[in-house]
Amino acid sequence: MTEDKPLVTIQGVHKFFGDHHVLKGIDMTVKPGEVSVIIGPSGSGKSTLLRCINLLETISAGRIYVHDDLIGFKEVNGKLHDLNTKSIAAQRREIGMVFQRFNLFPHKTALQNVIEAPTQVKRQSKAAAKLKALELLEMVGLSDRADFYPSQLSGGQQQRVAIARALAMEPELMLFDEPTSALDPELVGDVLEVMKNLAKSGMTMIVVTHEIGFAREVGDTLTFMDGGVVVESGPPREIISNPQHHRTKEFLSRVL
C-alpha cells in the first residue's frame, strides 16, 4: 500500500433523483489512512455522495473506485454492466458505514449486533466473533453493555455499538453519515472520541458532519459542498480560518 495511491477515487460523479440533480460532477480522492471530512448545508448532496460510495444509491454518471475496484459496475470493453447482488455484497464488506440514526438491530443485543455480520457473512465461528466483538465493545467503552438491547442504551452508546458493528467486518474504509447529528449535545463527545481514536489507529475515514471542531482537530482534508458541487477542499485549518469562497465563508459563519 503506497502512501500516494488513493484508496478512494471519485471521478465526475453525477446523481439524479428523477429530475432532481443532486450531485453535479464530484471529483475527490482519499488516501489510505486519511480522514476526509465533508461539510456543507443540508441538501448539498454530501450524504448522497457517501451513500453512493457504499452503493446505497447508484450513481448516474462518473466512476467511483475503492482500491481499484469500480464500485457498482464492471467494465467490459468500455461498456458498464451492473454488478450482481453477490458482487455488490462483496464490495460492501470492504466498506463500513455508520448512520445518523444508528440503525442497530433492535431485536438483538449489542453483542449480537456486532457478531451478526462476521458470523453470517464471513462465516466466522460464534466464539471467535464474540471474542473480537467484546474487544471492539471494549474499544468503544461499552464492554459492560454487551448484553443490553439497543432500546436500553443511550443514543451515544447506540452509535458507539454501531461503530463497533461496522468495524467487526474489518473494513478498509469507514463512512460516517452525520454520526452525531441525532445525539443529545452531551453525548456527542463520547462518539467523537471513539472516531478520533479510530483515526489515530490509521483507519481511512470519510466523515460527513457538522462538527467543525472535529474536522479541525482530526481531519486531514476538509471538503465544503454546496448545491451538489465541491466548492472548496484542502487542509481543514486553512479552510476554516481562511475560506476562499464566499459560500464557504457564509456557511462557516453560521455554524461556528
Binding site: I95, M97, F99, A117
Partner: peptide
Amino acid sequence: GQMEAAEALGMRRSKVMWRIILPQ
C-alpha cells in the same frame, strides 16, 4: 434503515429479510 444497515454490512438481501427484517 434496517435493510440499509444490514446491506451495508455486506449481507445478502435474502439473509437480511430472514434474519433482520422478518424477526422485527
